[in-house]
Design a binder for these strands. Structure first.
Length: 765
RNA sequence: GGGUUCGUAGCUCAGUUGGCUAGAGCAUCGCGUUUACACCGCGGAGGUCGUAGGUUCAAGUCCUACCGGACCCACCA
């Protein structure tokens, strides 16, 4: 057996990945007598290529490959996510380049545009997952918009509704006027800004505000009842500058005495704190900014302007009116859209909410009862904090890309619904139905419909057939992406009746980076337990973040983003997998640089060269007729000292690697998930013990002029040790190990990926 | 404002519940081209483990404070 001088990794990696899939080694088989091992791949976006972080799903692959070799029925299930906002955002950028916008299309046409766009790109990510060597069961691949998945998502919505856990409400929503949708609290970033604090004269009381343009929506002034400067004013009225509207002064403990002047203007329509105060005191809610970020219900001079411009002009007017006392610089944090970075505008928009409390309680209980364990443990505190503070979940988004909320309104019954649509000529019309239904046919509205807004108490039907008339429109909002991906363990396995679901649920382990703990993991726990009574996974493993070689977070603006596929191209998938696992502590950042990749590649080459040596010997000394099938136990007594030494080292390595990977059998196992420890042990064993020491030590016995029994024993030990070492390394570096395994004279399975995991033999020296 | 986390060799990082002369990869220096491998082998140099205290027979490892990074949460307008 002759090997080329250098491993041609790009050739064998690709052909092996194809062969594995064709042979169906990773197709999970249900065996009721055995305990399954199940991992669901966190679905990457269907329309985008993988980034470096995705390569870290190698953690899941290592564990899947390990348990598969241990003989457990193993399901590592792939899928992709439609990624609502992300994807629509990308498409809108594309439209913009073509001089168009989302407003140029009716809802249906826009949906189709996104759909076609995604279809073009589907397959990119999945091909890359194959290229990385992930042992996924492609026969079970899922996509969040598959009809059978949507059916389950809708059934959850229906059940939530039946249980009284779904409601609509008009409260302040984190709204991005640029993206045109509201967000949940989790999706808001806080960005530090240098702004101004304006001190205004409210005819009798001095107010400090950062948002003078919202004074037209003021309904009160609030002071702290314990503030000696102001408390006597409670119950009196003051006048809003410029419009001279009379508003009451109220007392509320939420007002900070030390900030500004201690007096707060109350604008329940545009500020979260004010909304709370307004609710407590039963105050009116006025909107002066609409969903497009334009001023409405305001004096003419700022009507229709954007917020920034309106602020400038309002400040001018205040100055002219002598109501602007002073301006201070203020450094503070403002909410921004996590997607487009625009400032979030809190707006009054009706949305769909899930009552979270009953769902959350069961998750906390599961944590208390240790039905689900978190690694590293510190993240359990984070998870609990998220659970304990979770506000009701806004599951509606004002975008088209995603499952449309399955609720229908009857326009005859509810003519106060506002519709926005393209008429026959393509003009965009917005109006309340009852005001425009004499001008436009229902069908014209329906066909050109972009969006609708139904007042909070509008009756809705989960089946359009239940509506009293036939003038029925479906809610135009879509589900939050996390509402569907939050049901991934249910949808992928075919809840509630499929064989897969009954056998593979609950899954064994969920592994992601810690940044989506609240978005995804918490939601899967909530909805999984809600629908099945059981946790969706028994273990949560939070893995590291990939950063650049200098430890900096990768970002497009810094230009330090590493494309994992470029690295695979240049150094091979095994080298990348090595680089991501070597010398890394759990959940700490992984600096990924060229040097580390070179280290990985060198290790692959080392393995290659060890194999070249061994195959050279087995070929050359073929007439010794070594029986490679003989077991370690059978050989032990006749072996020489060096042979026993390397086998003892091998056995120690088996113990160490197994302990790291076998997390599921012993909760007290301190080595679980310490992948770097296992890889380090393997690296040292292979490079130092086996290659540098044993091979050198044994050369004399092999190279002698008349090779005999001693050479035979050495050959047996070489070949046996090497096969077992390759198996141990296989979960980490699947390609090179398979490539060599296929050429071994003592191969014990069709593929190393289904070969029997090495057993540590207790031996005496 | 609250919280998490890190600060160990020139660089990037390991170091499990405190316990042998503190480790790895890369870089560096010297030697070496022996029929697997220079993407190699042998050998060497290199660290007061952020600072200051404390607990202990014993601390990189635990406690306190401080300095310096990173990150997360938050309704000071």
């Amino acid at each position: 057996m002759e090997l080329p001088k250098r491993p041609n990794f790009s050739e064998y990696e690709q052909s092996l990945s194809k062969w594995w899939e064709e042979e169906g080694f990773f197709k999970a088989k249900i065996d009721p007598d055995k305990k399954p091992f199940t991992i669901l791949l966190p679905p990457p976006n269907a329309n985008a290529p993988l980034h470096a972080g995705h390569a870290l799903y190698v953690v899941e692959d290592i564990l899947s490959r390990f348990y598969r070799m241990q003989g457990r029925p193993t399901l590592f299930l792939p899928g992709t996510d439609h990624a609502g906002i992300e994807t629509q955002f990308v498409l809108e950028k594309k439209l913009k380049k073509e001089g168009k916008s989302r407003f140029d299309y009716d809802r249906e046409s826009l949906y189709k545009l996104v759909h076609d766009f995604v279809e073009e790109n589907r397959g990119v990510a999945t091909d890359q997952l194959r290229r990385l060597g992930f042992s996924l069961d492609w026969s079970r691949e899922k996509y969040t918009l598959n009809p059978e998945i949507l059916e389950i998502v809708y059934s959850t919505f229906k059940k939530l509704h039946e249980d009284g856990l779904i409601y609509r409400d008009e409260r302040l929503v984190n709204y991005c006027t640029r993206c045109g949708t509201g967000f949940s609290n989790l999706e808001i970033n806080h960005a530090e800004r240098d702004d101004h604090l304006y001190y205004l004269d409210y005819d009798g009381i001095e107010i400090a505000t950062t948002r003078p343009e919202t004074i037209f929506a003021d309904v009160a002034v609030a002071v702290n009842p314990n503030d000696p400067r102001h408390k006597d004013k409670i119950g009196k009225t003051v006048k809003v500058p410029l419009i001279n509207k009379e508003i009451p002064v109220i007392g509320d403990g939420l007002v900070e005495i030390d900030f500004g002047t201690g007096a707060l203007k109350i604008t329940p329509g545009h500020d979260q704190t004010d909304f709370e105060i307004g609710k407590k005191h039963g105050l009116e809610r006025i909107s002066v900014i609409n969903r497009f970020g334009r001023m409405v219900n305001v004096p003419e001079y700022i009507e229709g302007l954007n917020v920034k411009k309106a602020r400038e002009i309002t400040v001018e007017k205040l100055k002219e009116a002598g109501k602007l006392i002073k301006v201070e610089d203020l450094h503070h944090a403002v909410g921004t859209c996590y997607k487009c970075k625009s400032v979030i505008e809190p707006l009054l928009v009706p949305q769909w909410y899930v009552k979270v409390k009953p769902l959350v309680e069961n998750v906390i209980k599961a944590l208390d009862e240790k039905r689900v364990s978190v690694f590293p443990e510190r993240f359990e505190r984070d998870l609990r904090r998220w659970l304990e503070t979770a506000p009701d979940w806004n599951i509606s988004r004002q975008i088209v890309w995603g499952p449309q909320i399955p609720a229908w309104y009857d326009l005859t019954e509810s003519p106060d619904i506002e519709v926005t649509f393209l008429d026959k000529e393509g003009n965009r019309i917005t109006g309340v139905y009852k005001d425009i239904n004499d001008k436009y046919e229902f069908d014209e509205i329906k066909n050109g419909l972009q969006s609708l807004i139904a007042p909070v108490n509008t009756p809705f039907y989960l089946d359009p057939k239940d509506a009293p008339s036939k003038f029925v429109l479906q809610e135009t909002d879509t589900f939050d992406t996390w509402f569907s991906s939050g049901q991934w363990p249910l949808t992928t396995l075919g809840f509630p009746d499929s064989k897969d679901f009954k056998y593979f649920y609950p899954t064994t382990l969920l592994d992601t980076m810690w940044d989506i703990l609240a978005f995804w993991i918490m939601r899967m726990l909530m909805l999984g337990i809600y629908r099945t009574g059981e946790v969706p996974f028994k273990w949560i493993h939070l893995h590291s973040r990939v950063v650049d070689a200098r430890g900096q977070k990768m970002s497009k603006s810094k230009g330090n983003v590493v494309n994992p596929m470029d690295l695979v191209e240049k150094y091979g998938a095994d080298a990348l997998r090595f680089a991501l696992m070597f010398g890394v502590a759990p959940a700490s950042d992984i600096p990924l640089g060229e040097e580390k990749m070179i280290g990985g590649r060198n290790f692959v080459t080392k393995i290659w060269n060890i194999s070249r040596f061994i195959f050279g010997q087995t070929t050359h000394l073929n007439d010794l007729n070594v029986d490679y099938e003989t077991t370690q136990a059978e050989m032990w007594d006749v072996l020489e000292e060096d042979d026993k030494t390397i086998l003892n080292r091998l056995n120690a390595t088996i113990t160490q690697v197994t302990k790291v990977l076998d997390f599921d059998n012993d909760k007290e196992n301190h080595d679980k998930f310490q992948f770097a420890r296992a890889l380090d042990a393997l690296y040292n064993f292979i490079w130092d013990d086996f290659a540098s020491w044993y091979i050198e030590a044994v050369k004399e016995r092999l190279f002698t002029d008349t090779p005999g029994e001693s050479a035979k024993k050495a050959l047996w030990t070489l070949v046996f040790t090497w096969r077992e070492a390759l198996k141990l390394l296989h979960p980490f570096m699947p390609f090179i190990t398979e490539e060599i395994y296929q050429k071994l004279p003592n191969k014990d399975a069709k593929s190393i990926s289904i070969a029997k995991w090495p057993q540590s033999l207790k031996t005496t020296k």
